[in-house]
Design a protein around this nucleic acid. Structure first.
Length: 574
DNA sequence: GCCGTTTTCGGCCCGACTGTTTTCAGTCG
C-alpha cells in the first residue's frame, strides 16, 4: 500500500470526526499523522512489515502506530468503518465546496438529508437551503455556484499553468503607484509542482485604493471577498487569488506567513510560544507585545537562531532543525546548470532539428547539450530512407565539429523491455555518450516484477541514467508500482544518474525522491525534455524540483564543465 | 490523540472576512 493511501484513511477519519463534532485536537492529531506518513519519505508498508516502531516518528504515537499496522495488514481501519456507518458515503464531497465546512455539512445532512453533491445541487435549486438556520439566500447562491464550479474545475493548477496569470497580475499590480513591495508568495513562491491558488502580498501607502486596483484586474471573473487589508478574487480560468496588504514594518512577517507552508508556519509559531513570544503576520512580539522582528524574513529567522530558509524548503520536513544547526543545504542555483542533458529532435519525437536546438541553447549561454532521441525511432526507418541511427550520429558529430562554442553529447533513450533487458545491440551502445533507459510500457506489472525489471536495466554496464524514473503524470496518472528505495540504492551503486525532468506535468523525480536520492549518494541530472526550442525553458521547472529536493550543485551532473562531465559519465571512473 | 531539559496533565498557531450574530460562529488560509 502506498503512503498516500495510508494517509488517506487518517484524512477521511479526521474529516468525518469533524463533521461529527469530535475533539478537535484528536482530529488535528490524525491530520498531523497523515502528513508525516505522506512526507517523511519512508515506505510505511515496509516499516510495518519489518516491525519498526512507528511511534518513534513525529506525530505518531502508540495508538496511531497501531492503526497504521491495522491498515497495512488488513487494508481497513475499523475505527473509520464505524464512523463511516453514521454518514452517507459521499458526505465528504460537501467539504470541497467553498463556504461549506464541517458544521454546515452536518446541518445539511441532519436537517435536509443531503449526503452528496447531487443532493446539494438539487436542494439549492429547490431553495430549501435558505430556510435552514445559519443559511440564507446568499449562502445558498454561493453554494450552488460552488457546486457548479467544483464540477467544472475541482483541481489544482500546474505551476506552469498558473505562472502566466501570476506574471500578468504581478505586472498589473506593479503599475499602481501606492504599492512599494510586491511578491507572489504561497506555494507558487515555494515552487510546488501544483498550486491551489495564488497568494500575493504587497506593501502600500493606500491599502484601500490598492484593493480597488486589485479587484479591477481585467481577468477577474468574480470578487469573492474584499476588505481593507485582504481580498479574494477568482480569475476567468477559475484560479483563485488572495491578495494581502500590510505596512513595510510587517512585510517580512507577512511574507513568511503568506509563503507558508502551513506546517512550517505552525512549527515556527510553536517555537515562539515556547519562548513566550507570539508570531503573526504583523511581526514577532515578546511578552510585553513589543515587536522584536518583522521587517524582513531574514530578521525573523535570525531571531530564532536559525539560518535563512529558502522558500522551497519550507515544508516542515526537517528544514527547521537543519537551520538551527546550520546544516541547511546550499541549494543549486540556475546559473550553475551548464547545459541541458535531455532534448529531442526530429530524429524522434522532437519538432525542431538538432541544429535549431543547438542554436537555441547557444543563445541561452549553455556549454553543452545532450540529445537523447528515442531508440524505437532511431532503430527502425519509419518509412525514411537510409539508416536513421547512422544519420543521427553523423549529424550530431558534424554539429559538434562545426559549433566551436558548444559541445554536443550523443544520446539515446531506450525503453526497457518487460523482462528488464534492453532491445538494442550491445556494440551499438558504445557510440553514445548518454545511454538513457526508461519505462514506456507494461505499467501494470506488480511491484516486485516492475522493480526487478528496472534494477536489471540499471545494472547494465553501458547505462548512464534512468529517465522519468517513476512514470507519473501529475493529476492524471500515478507512477507504476515500484520500490523506489531499491531503485535509488541501485542507481547509487551502479553510478546511474536519475533524471529530474522539467516537463510541467511530469516533473519526475519529485521532490521527496530527489532528496532520497541525494541522501543515498545517487547523482541526478536536470533536463527540459524539450521537443523544440520553446520548451528549453522547462529546465527551470526541473531546477525548482531539484531545489525542493534539497539538492546542491554537487549532486547534479550538469553543473559540471564538459570535461569533468564526460569523465563522470564514463562509468567506473567517477 | 500527541507531546514534554519549566513532563505524564493540560496544553495544542493565529488572524481576516462574511453574515445579521450588535459580540460571534463559521470558514478560510
Amino acid at each position: 500500500m502506498t503512503n498516500a493511501e495510508i494517509a488517506r484513511f487518517f484524512k477521511e477519519l479526521g474529516d468525518l470526526l469533524e463533521i461529527k463534532g469530535d475533539n478537535p485536537f484528536r482530529i488535528r492529531a490524525y491530520r498531523n499523522a497523515a502528513r508525516t506518513i505522506e512526507t517523511s519519505g519512508y515506505d510505511f508498508t515496509k516499516l510495518v512489515k519489518e516491525g519498526y516502531d512507528l511511534s518513534q516518528l513525529p506525530d505518531i504515537g502508540e495508538r496511531i502506530a497501531k492503526k497504521i499496522a491495522e491498515i497495512v495488514t488488513t487494508g481497513k481501519l475499523s475505527k473509520l468503518e464505524e464512523v463511516k456507518k453514521e454518514f452517507p458515503p459521499h458526505i465528504l464531497d460537501l467539504l470541497k465546496i467553498e463556504g461549506i465546512g464541517p458544521k454546515r455539512a452536518r446541518a445539511l445532512y441532519e436537517q435536509l438529508g443531503i449526503g452528496s453533491l447531487e443532493d446539494l445541487k438539487k436542494a439549492a435549486e429547490a431553495h430549501k437551503i435558505r430556510e435552514l438556520p445559519g443559511f440564507d439566500v446568499k449562502t445558498e447562491e454561493k453554494i450552488l455556484k460552488g457546486v457548479v464550479l467544483y464540477k467544472k474545475e475541482g483541481r489544482r493548477f500546474l505551476y506552469a499553468e498558473a505562472e502566466p496569470y501570476a506574471m500578468e497580475l504581478y505586472d498589473y499590480l506593479k503599475k499602481h503607484e501606492a504599492i512599494h513591495q510586491l511578491t507572489i508568495a504561497g506555494s507558487f513562491r515555494r515552487r510546488k509542482e501544483t498550486v491551489g491558488d495564488l497568494d500575493i502580498l504587497a506593501t502600500s501607502d493606500d491599502p484601500l485604493g490598492t484593493m480597488d486596483h486589485f479587484v479591477g484586474f481585467d481577468k477577474v471573473k468574480e470578487v469573492v471577498s474584499k476588505g481593507d487589508t485582504r481580498s479574494t478574487i477568482i480569475l476567468e480560468n477559475n484560479l483563485q487569488v488572495d491578495f494581502r496588504c500590510v505596512t513595510d514594518l510587517s512585510y517580512g512577517a507577512a511574507l513568511h506567513y503568506f509563503t507558508g507552508s502551513k506546517p512550517h508556519n505552525i512549527a515556527i509559531r510553536k517555537m515562539a510560544v515556547e519562548k513566550g513570544w507570539k508570531v503573526n503576520e504583523y511581526g514577532v512580539f515578546d511578552e510585553t507585545m513589543q515587536r522584536i522582528a518583522g521587517k524582513t524574513e531574514e530578521e525573523i529567522y535570525r531571531l530564532f537562531g536559525m539560518d535563512y530558509i529558502e522558500p522551497e524548503l519550507r515544508e516542515d520536513r526537517g528544514e527547521i532543525e537543519a537551520a538551527l544547526e546550520g546544516k541547511l543545504p546550499r541549494l543549486v542555483e540556475g546559473d550553475a546548470i551548464r547545459g541541458d542533458l535531455h532534448c529531442y529532435s526530429t530524429h524522434s519525437i522532437g519538432t525542431a532539428s538538432c541544429e535549431e536546438m543547438v542554436e537555441a541553447v547557444l543563445r541561452q549561454g549553455d556549454a553543452y547539450i545532450g540529445f537523447a532521441d528515442r531508440a524505437d525511432h532511431l532503430l527502425s526507418s519509419h518509412g525514411k530512407s537510409g539508416d536513421p541511427l547512422e544519420a543521427y550520429l553523423k549529424e550530431l558529430g558534424e554539429l559538434d565539429r562545426r559549433y566551436k562554442k558548444i559541445r554536443i553529447l550523443k544520446g539515446i533513450e531506450i525503453a526497457i523491455d518487460a523482462d528488464g533487458s534492453l532491445p538494442v545491440a550491445e556494440d551499438l551502445l558504445t557510440s553514445f555518450d548518454l545511454v538513457y533507459v526508461t519505462v514506456e510500457d507494461h505499467f501494470d506489472l506488480d511491484k516486485k516484477r516492475q522493480t526487478r525489471r528496472i534494477l536489471a536495466a540499471l545494472a547494465h554496464p553501458a547505462v548512464t541514467a534512468l529517465t522519468h524514473p517513476t512514470g507519473r503524470i501529475i493529476s492524471r496518472r500515478n507512477g507504476y508500482s515500484v520500490d523506489m528505495e531499491r531503485v535509488i540504492a541501485a542507481a547509487a551503486e551502479h553510478r546511474v544518474a536519475l533524471e529530474i525532468d522539467g516537463h510541467p506535468d511530469r516533473l519526475d523525480l519529485n521532490d521527496v525522491y530527489a532528496r532520497m536520492a541525494r541522501d543515498a549518494g545517487a547523482k541526478l541530472l536536470l533536463s527540459s525534455l524539450a521537443q523544440n526550442p520553446e520548451e528549453l525553458r522547462f529546465r527551470t521547472y526541473a531546477l525548482h524540483q531539484a531545489r525542493r529536493g534539497w539538492l546542491e550543485a554537487s549532486d547534479i551532473l550538469n553543473t559540471l564543465p564538459y570535461g569533468r562531465l564526460t569523465k563522470a559519465l564514463a562509468k567506473g571512473e567517477r
